[in-house]
Design a protein around this nucleic acid. Structure first.
Lengths: 211, 211
DNA sequence: CGCATGGTGGACCGAACGATCCATAATCAG
DNA sequence: CTGATTATGGATCGTTCGGTCCACCATGCG
């Protein structure tokens, strides 16, 4: 009989005879990129073994089954993206410029590679949200967090006199997020980067007037 | 040796001893709904047999393999949607109202069921566009056709004096399409229909000023 | 009315999947 | 150095998948 749950790391009191021979975060990032490029269903365990450099047993021992590993990779993505977003929104001298950069983010890539790859959270939402409650919950969580962050910057832009006082920060944030995700979608259809950039500029100009 | 290609319907000169016992279009619509609800990978042949009411052999004999059947269902969807769109855009007395209805289309549903279901073409693009050239081609085709239709209405709204003359119809059409697809995405995250409707209204107001 | 045609769908197949298992080897405590 | 411990990953399992096949029979013609 198995006395320890090997799917949970180091939760027992025994000695640690052999430490991990791989960087957990590095593996998660590799796995995340694989799911990002191919999607969940189209990624086989063989793919995960290949990109991680680990064996099946090690993968299961360290992270649990495919579904848990995916959720872990998805969480890594949303945490990293959320961090970038927060930094982008807070570091800009003027909030209005930060909001413009937020809308333009999907095309902020020289070759448009990021635009074609899309957003892992959006990809996962479209593929799994209807059948996987965990993914749906993560999508809602990310959506709400992003809306709150953007709304905060909208308020700051109002304080700085770059946006009129009578607009609703949260409503504006939702509209900006919708516009950004619409651009992500158009990027996934293979629309060329120049046209995509022009469309992003149009949306930013209409949704964020200088008045 | 098989002398006739049974995957192609009635392309031979022999007699027609037994006519089809099912309505081809009806089967395609049922299959389309299944793919719409569950996605491509998550739909098994067993599911297709169940919703179509046909046996595996009949399904393969009439439509070919799963991939061809999916493309057929996808084409049915884009044709039907394109027809609705064309009618919606041309039947409205004023083109500006039609454009507003276009942006609000994802939330034009009492319970928000359509919003949660999303758009089959968008779902398919996110799930398959990176790996399936046929789906990517269909996505581009649909995107370009939609852009052209909307741009035509933008031009008509200009002629009717509802939109300023100096805006680019095609660029505006792309921005409207991006906004609409952004709303579709937010619907897929499970956002409640009231908030979604408000966001749609905000986007329509910003992108389609009365000036 | 009987025969030839071909639509029908359940049985069946090989392949690939996710998941589990266990012999091996690497590691650290004593 | 020795033994206890556990990370490791190739072998293997049962399941499910998409796809094929063929015995059956409904059908329309002569």
């Amino acid at each position: 009989m198995r006395l320890v749950d090997r799917t949970v790391k180091n939760c027992y009191a025994g000695q640690m005879a052999r430490p991990r021979q791989f960087d957990e975060e590095q593996v998660i990032r590799a796995v995340r990129d694989q799911f990002w490029d191919a999607g969940y269903a189209a990624t086989s365990l063989e793919d995960l073994v290949r990109v991680s450099g680990l064996g099946k047993g090690s993968l299961y021992g360290a992270f649990g089954d495919k579904h848990r590993l995916f959720l872990r990779a998805l969480r890594e993505y949303t945490d990293t993206s959320g961090g970038y977003l927060r930094e982008m929104l807070t570091s800009a001298p003027r909030a209005l410029d930060a909001l413009r950069a937020f809308v333009m983010a999907p095309v902020n890539d020289p070759g448009g590679a990021a635009a074609r790859r899309g957003c892992l959270m959006a990809n996962s939402t479209y593929e799994l949200a209807t059948s996987d409650p965990d993914v749906l919950a993560e999508a809602r969580r990310t959506y709400e967090a992003t809306t709150a962050l953007v709304a905060e910057s909208v308020g700051r832009a109002q304080d700085e006199g770059d946006l009129p006082r009578d607009v609703d920060p949260v409503g504006t944030a939702r509209a900006l997020l919708a516009a950004q995700q619409g651009l992500v979608f158009m990027g996934r259809t293979g629309l060329d980067i120049d046209t995509l950039t022009a469309t992003a500029g149009t949306l930013a100009a209409k949704l964020l007037p200088d008045a």
